[in-house]
Design a protein around this nucleic acid. Structure first.
Lengths: 146, 146
DNA sequence: TATTGTTATACTCTATAACTATA
DNA sequence: TATAGTTATAGAGTATAACAATA
C-alpha cells in the first residue's frame, strides 16, 4: 500500500502520469502512419464536415501556425484538401479526402487497441465506470464539446 | 451525448486531455513557489531519505542533465543540499533541508486543492472509486513504485 | 576502463510577431 | 482598417554527447 498523504495518491498526479503514458503509447502506434495524436483530433473534427483553419486552431487548442504545419503534413499524406472558400476568398475550407477518412478509421482502431493495452489490468465493469467518470469530468471542465 | 465510435470516447484520449489539464493547473499553483510538477516528485523521493543524482534521474524518469538543473534550482531555494559521499567521492547525496521539507508540505497541500477543483463536479464515492482504479492502472503499468 | 556528475550542444515543440491577400 | 492564412523567428523543454573527477 502507498504511503498516506503522498503526492502519488493524488488524482491529479495520477491523471498526469497516466495521461502522459497513454499519449506516449498512442503516439508510438500512430508513428508508422506518419501521424501524431494532435492530427487525430483534426481528422475527427473534419469527419463532421469541412472547417476553416482558424476554426480548427480554436477547436484543437493550438496556435494558427501549428495548424498550418499539421495541415501541410496531412496534405502530404493526401488526407486532407485545402479548398478556397468562394464566398470569402481569404478562407480555406479543409476537407477530408477518402484516404483521410480511411486514416481516421485506422487511428480509431489504434486508439481502441491502446485502450485495451492500458486497461488490461482492470475488469470491464470498472472500465465502463472509469470511462463514464472521466467523461463527466472532461465535460465539466469544458475540455470536450458535448 | 457524444458520438458512438469517436476518439473522444476513448479512455486513452480522455486520460491524455485530463492529465494535461491537471498538470497545467498544478503547475499554475506551484509557480509562486518557484517550482514545477517535476520538482515535487524529487521532493517526495527525498522525503524518504537522501539519494544520489542518478538514482533521482531514474526514479523521476528524466535524463541526468535535467536532474542537475532541477537540483540547481532546488538548491537556490535552499530546499536541498548536495553532500559528497565520503565512501565514493564521485557521488553526491542529495538531502532535503528543513525548508525543503516545508516546501514539500506546501506542494502536497496545493495538490489536494488541485484535486478538489478538478473533481468538484463528481461526488465523493465516485472520487474514491476513480482514485482506486487509477492507482491500480498506474501500479499495473509500473508507473508508480508500490 | 567504467562511473558520477557536469557542461555544451542540438533538437523538438510551441508561441509571437511580421507579412500577404483578401475583405 | 480588420481578418485568414502564412512565414520567420525566438523561446521553452528535453535529449545527446563530450568532459572532468573519481573509482
Amino acid at each position: 500500500m502507498t504511503v498516506e498523504g503522498s503526492l502519488t495518491n493524488t488524482v491529479g498526479f495520477l491523471l498526469g502520469k497516466l495521461g502522459q503514458q497513454a499519449n506516449g503509447q498512442f503516439a508510438d502506434r500512430l508513428a508508422p502512419l506518419g501521424l501524431r495524436p494532435r492530427h487525430c483530433a483534426v481528422l475527427e473534427l473534419l469527419a463532421g464536415g469541412p472547417r476553416a483553419q482558424l476554426e480548427l486552431a480554436k477547436a484543437v487548442g493550438v496556435t494558427p501556425s501549428v495548424v498550418v504545419d499539421m495541415l501541410d503534413e496531412l496534405e502530404t499524406l493526401d488526407a486532407v484538401r485545402r479548398v478556397r472558400d468562394t464566398a470569402d476568398r481569404r478562407r480555406q475550407l479543409i476537407e477530408l479526402t477518402s484516404t483521410g477518412l480511411d486514416l481516421r478509421h485506422q487511428t480509431l482502431s489504434l486508439a481502441r487497441q491502446n485502450d485495451e493495452e492500458l486497461l488490461s489490468a482492470i475488469d470491464p465493469t470498472e472500465v465502463a465506470a472509469l470511462r463514464q467518470i472521466l467523461g463527466r469530468i472532461a465535460a465539466a471542465t469544458g475540455l470536450v464539446e458535448k
